[in-house]
Design a protein around this nucleic acid. Structure first.
Length: 262
DNA sequence: CAACGAAATGTGACGTTTTG
DNA sequence: CAAAACGTCACATTTCGTTG
């Protein structure tokens, strides 16, 4: 079953599908894939393959339907046992409560990534408020320009997406306000940090959220605005750039010590 | 309005767990 | 135990917002 307009198959290829057909299957499927992915709601044990089966069996169509899945729906899928079904349901339940920034990110609004989602969430505080903002009002938020403002506005003024949001709320999803807490004094407060290479003691993501919790910013690329580069094993090109720009380089040990985790 | 830095998007490889 | 499916990671390229 292919979309008559774009003719894309139902295949998770990480391609961003921009088919004009509002009910394009390939697009709907990609939206589902993104929603459960790490960059979205991060629903464990649910990935492209499972979604494809459920979509083809018409058990789900939109991201809202994920929250209405039953044990039987899942057990009907091939290669599905009790153990994994328990985990899946558990995982979905865990994600019923979500912060506004996380939710906003997971919706997959164009031009809204992890960072911008957080910025917007901290400014507007609630989902209701966000829906009321005009593009002009949105642009008053720092780091939000015309492109982002338009995407966000369009999303919240589209009949389909509003229905999906309503359905999610009806299915027990609660979006809570963003909590902004002031970080205590530490070497990373207000600093920009870039990680390169592999860290032994934690994942890249854990390290980045550690920096954030300390009031710093974890960035992906080295520039002259970067305060520290933390070099793990097999550090790549970012380490070279740091040396070239005379950015202070920290070993993993130094990093942990300064972060108070050593 | 061009240059620049940061964020978003795209690409590809590899490790781990579960089912049957 | 092998195939399937999920998870993790690094990094290149493109796009966006800001600033001089």
């Amino acid at each position: 079953e292919k979309c008559p307009v774009c003719n894309f198959p139902l295949q998770h290829e990480d391609i961003y599908i921009r088919c004009v057909n509002p009910s394009c299957p390939a697009k709907e499927y990609e939206t589902l894939c993104f929603f459960v992915s790490k960059d979205g709601m991060d629903i464990e044990y649910v990935g492209p393959e499972l979604l494809k089966r459920l979509y083809e069996q018409k058990k789900i169509k939109t991201i809202a339907d994920i929250y209405a899945l039953t044990r039987d729906d899942l057990l009907q899928v091939e290669r599905m046992g009790d153990k994994i079904v328990d985990k899946i349901l558990d995982s979905i339940n865990q994600r019923r409560k979500v912060s506004l920034s996380h939710f906003l990110r997971a919706l997959g609004i164009r031009n809204v990534g992890e960072h911008i989602a957080k910025v917007i969430a901290r400014h507007v505080r609630s989902l209701d408020k966000l829906q009321e903002l005009s593009p002009q009002e949105l642009m008053r938020i720092p780091e939000v320009g015309p492109g982002v403002a338009q995407s966000v506005y369009d999303f919240f003024h589209n009949k389909e997406s509003l229905e999906i949001i309503k359905k999610m709320l009806d299915n027990g999803v609660t979006v809570h306000e963003e909590v902004v807490e002031e970080a205590s004094e530490n070497p990373f407060k207000g600093k920009t940090v870039v990680f390169t290479g592999t860290l032994k003691s934690m994942s890249r993501q854990e390290a980045e959220s550690l920096i954030e919790s300390l009031g710093g910013k974890a960035s992906g690329s080295v520039s002259k605005k970067t305060d520290f580069v933390v070099a793990g094993e097999e550090a790549g090109s970012k380490l070279d750039k740091a040396k070239a720009l005379n950015v202070r380089i920290l070993s993993e040990e130094e990093f942990l010590k300064m972060a108070g985790r050593a």
